[in-house]
């Protein structure tokens, strides 16, 4: 969604029109909620974070100068609210050793994607994303669903575009690993069923 499409609603909200803000909430609630779920892996906590995010967006709307897209600004608030929440709860962002995922590169094996294509599991990617550690889920969602560039994601996570590129590369490998495990489990189940 471009800034031009959001700007009229931002201006109306600033003049006290709550209906205009409701439009903005409806427009971004799915992505905000999804990003929060990817970070905290819990729907109730994600709802709290998403509400806090919109509250912060509303209170800080006058300070939004349009230096970036409105969506980028909202996602950045979501990302940092999630990090704050994790910190407040005394947890740490779950990380996984890269080596653990380097046993076998599934992306190099023949027929891997074709196998995935044949899989008809309804929430194949969504379930796999839940198993991704740290902010991998957010990176994958922003890159593949929202189609943001490395640079745009780097604005949200407050890091460099190169860091995002490396993180995305690793996240993609981890995703492939999880998907491969899902496939092998399903194959085992089907053999046992026979």
């Amino acid at each position: 969604m471009s800034l031009e499409q959001d700007q009229p609603y931002i201006e109306r909200t600033l003049s006290g029109d709550m209906k205009a803000f409701s439009v903005l909430v409806d427009r971004y609630k799915h992505m905000v909620f999804t990003l929060a779920v990817r970070m905290v892996k819990n729907r109730e906590e994600a709802e709290e974070i998403a509400q806090d995010t919109f509250l912060k967006v509303y209170n800080g709307l006058a300070g939004f100068k349009g230096g970036s897209k409105f969506s980028t600004w909202v996602y950045k608030i979501t990302y940092f609210r999630s990090l704050d929440y994790i910190k407040k709860k005394g947890r740490s962002l779950e990380t996984t050793l890269i080596e653990a995922y380097h046993e076998y590169d599934h992306l190099e094996s023949d027929g891997f994607v074709a196998q995935l294509e044949r899989n008809e599991q309804h929430h194949l990617i969504r379930d796999a994303l839940k198993l991704l550690p740290g902010n991998d889920g957010i990176l994958i969602t922003l890159h593949y669903f929202e189609e943001l560039t490395h640079k745009e994601i780097s604005v949200i996570t407050n890091s460099s575009a190169n860091t995002v590129k490396v993180q995305l590369f690793r996240a993609r490998k981890r995703l492939a690993q999880i998907l491969a495990k899902t496939l092998s489990h399903e194959m085992n189940d089907s053999y046992e069923g026979k």
């Binding site: 409701s22 609630k29 799915h30 909620f33 509250l55 990617i125 969504r126 994958i140």
Partner: peptide, 27 residues
Amino acid sequence: DFDAFVQKRIKAEALEQPPKDFTVSVV
């Protein structure tokens, strides 16, 4: 191919759904 597959499926599976009264709760 993997990128194209992930992109296609992630869009097809759509985003997480917040509770129905989410917007009302925020307002």
